[in-house]
Design a protein around this nucleic acid. Sequence first.
RNA 1: GGGCGGUUAGCUCAGCCGGUAGAGCAUCGGUUUUACACACCGAGGGUCGGCGGUUCGAACCCGUCACCGCCCACCA
Length: 884
Amino acid sequence: MLDKTYSPAEVETRRYAEWEREGAFAAGHRDDATPWAVMMPPPNVTGSLHMGHALNMTLQDVLTRYWRRRGHDALWQPGMDHAGIATQMVVERNLAAEGKDRREMGREAFLDAVWQWKGESGGMIVNQLRRLGATPDWSRERFTMDDGLSRAVRRIFVGLYKDGLIYRDKRLVNWDPKLGTAISDLEVESKETKGHLWHFRYPLEDDPATHVTVATTRPETMLGDTAVAVHPEDARYAALIGRHVTLPLVGRRIPIVADDYADPEQGSGAVKITPAHDFNDFEVGRRHGLEMINVLDAAGRINEAAPEAYRGLDRFEARTRIVADMEAAGLLERIDDHVHMVPYGDRGGVPIEPWLTDQWYCDAKVLAEPAIKAVEEGRTRFVPETWTRTYFDWMRNIQPWCISRQLWWGHRIPAWYGPDGTIFVEESEVEAYRAARAHYGEEVDLAQDEDVLDTWFSSGLWPFSTLGWPDETETLKRYYPGDVLVTGFDIIFFWVARMMMMGLYAMDEVPFRTVYIHALVRDAKGQKMSKSKGNVIDPIDLIERYGADALRFTLLSQAAQGRDVKLSEQRVEGYRNFATKLWNAARYCEMNGCTPRSGFGPRSARLTVNRWIVGEAAKTGRAVTAAIEGYRFNEAATALYSFTWGTFCDWYLEFTKPILAGEDEAAAEETRATTAWVLDHILHLLNPLMPFVTEELWDALGDDRAHRLITAPWPDDPDDLADPAAFEEMDWIVRLISTVRAVRAEMNVPASAKIPLAVKDATPRQAEWLGMHEDLILRLARLSSITRTDTPAERGSAQAILDEATLILPLADVIDLDQERARLAKEIGKLDQEIAKIDAKLSNDQFLAKAPDDVVAEQRDRRDDAEATKQRLAEALERVAETA
RNA sequence: GGGCGGUUAGCUCAGCCGGUAGAGCAUCGGUUUUACACACCGAGGGUCGGCGGUUCGAACCCGUCACCGCCCACCA
């Protein structure tokens, strides 16, 4: 006997352990089955499960569970990302707490410490995923820094280098002075900042009393100015072009150049040029052959290239000092308040500095071409489709990708430098030495590049590196390309685009056929969850209080395409209630002997109500299947919720109670069998969404299950399970009973009956009232059609139900006649309005001429119905009036 | 500045091919009824953001405006 309420905590741990023990998630056991694959976006090894993961993983899990049960050889490939910067920061912080410093330890000792940290505290998220019920093939778990994947990284790097698609270049990069590393464009976040616009006067060299005014938001960069630019057609400055100014505080003689970049409308129309510290100025400098003077060191302090007075100052201290000095020199014209966008590093949290360094770049432009083409040709498609445009926009304007990072934790760049600086890019040190020997004709010492690769470089290989590439493994052949990638829009550029490029480069084939992009999870008010706002909801906390099924269902119910998920605890609670509801329905089934009948086929049902529920169940099944395959998870959730609760529990179970309690044993038995079948069907369909409670019930209710539900074949729901006649009749009955209920409520009858067949005595007064509702009685007579039978015996049972039915009417000792009169009058008013509306339509020649016949017929029917109802209500009103 | 998305009941959102505007929650009223009070029954609540157009007919298609959100962008 099932307990009175469902307690998720115990069931979830027990069930998950069983599944895992039995190897239920493992791919590769069905050689004859069609492969189906999804790649888990590898969470950071530093990560713990947040709501975004919970959504992302739930979606993948539903798909995986679905296709697995559909009979495919489903692979959900799990793993973790080494997360270069994030991990290095965590470990450095831990070491700092012990009074240790990375640089003092040295590279090797530090890396040992990171690996040790990974072994002890990394990957917490993997166990949290188990709490969520996720079923990737854990036996295949990979790590971006494991041997195989590292080998893949080196192989690709060498290949790209030799193809000329990776190269070394000296140019401005986004430099994070706090972390001391370059970062890519994508890792820069612009933040609107209130600042100032300082207007400085630069005196002319040959006429120091005359100034050119330039405005800047970054006074400290003036130390590196090497020109002032004006627009070539700006009349105000035409005479100055080619002359020079003396750079204040520095004393450098710098030219006034003409360049389109200077906007005459902006400020004074003259702009200071600092080629080493501004991306635009860099370009201007290049055009005019200007000197590039780097005045900052790696930590963002003023370096030796600047006048002594400023050396060693932090860039912001230098700013203050310079403004003061300029003012003292009488060269500060004015200060305006100014709001502008300041670039920040997304990890370091400090403003990034455009800085001139040597870095490794990947020629993304070339790699992007096939990746663009693949999407144009539909070999990979985005769901929802709207993201296609975002993808194209970025890919078509893609910039060189800076792939080197001045960190220690990551894939070290497989490049070695000879004594004269010759670069040897090889997959191993041995090969590098071999190449060097060939090059120099003698043994030389080589030094490996100190830098590591951007984390996303290895993530880009994930779809094939995890499957064994560069070896041509069976696994790789079988599961590449994957069917779908499930991810949030925030990493389309970081990850999806890179996988497309790398996949096409290495495999000459797209990495996945479909990219399903889901939204962000926000708090109940629609705000982004963040630690600083204190509105972060912990998925594990919700799982503990409401169960993993409830959390999953909540996320799924809102996973509509193109909409954010707003997570409110109230909703989670609601779906917890849903699990309980299902549990109790199953309990009811158990108590009434509605357990699966091995020989029972849903087609054999004869009673209308049974034929009807079977058809509804089948319809729901088809809806769920279509929704999952179409990535409309919210529709799957809604269909199941409303069928289970609104149709099965509220209508079917209530409706059949009299049949179960009745004397017609055949009808009762058929109903028990049907009930069990429908419940089973619900468990089947709901299983990918709510795996725990469904498995538990499946197990509890069936005696000899051939499968666990997790591996049971997905049900097919053929069209012909739905019997139109049964639908029509039930529809009528349902409407009738609704009417009865409404009347009962209107009469204020304390109902002692469930629906609808229980009150057996009517007083004369009540019988009199029934006269006022003749229409109802007439309709009730048709309840005989609850059964669709013709044999005398069956007709007898139908009659029995009918007999009872006539006695069920909700009856009151007292009716408030005034209230009843008002109600009827109101109803009649509404009907009049409706009739008038339809009449207008039906008298419109255009409508009659152009609307399809069925639409016109429908309007006529509606009008007739409304008219008939109105007639009945009018008569009832009359009787009420008489009675009063 | 460019792009994308949104605006439907008090709240959160569905609404597919243009044909009677929906759900959940919340609110209010009723019900201890042997599956379930984490429940059941019922009720109220709408100018579908504004304006214009197409159409016999528009929440839906087109145009335009307003407001909100997000992404991208080098403007000193």
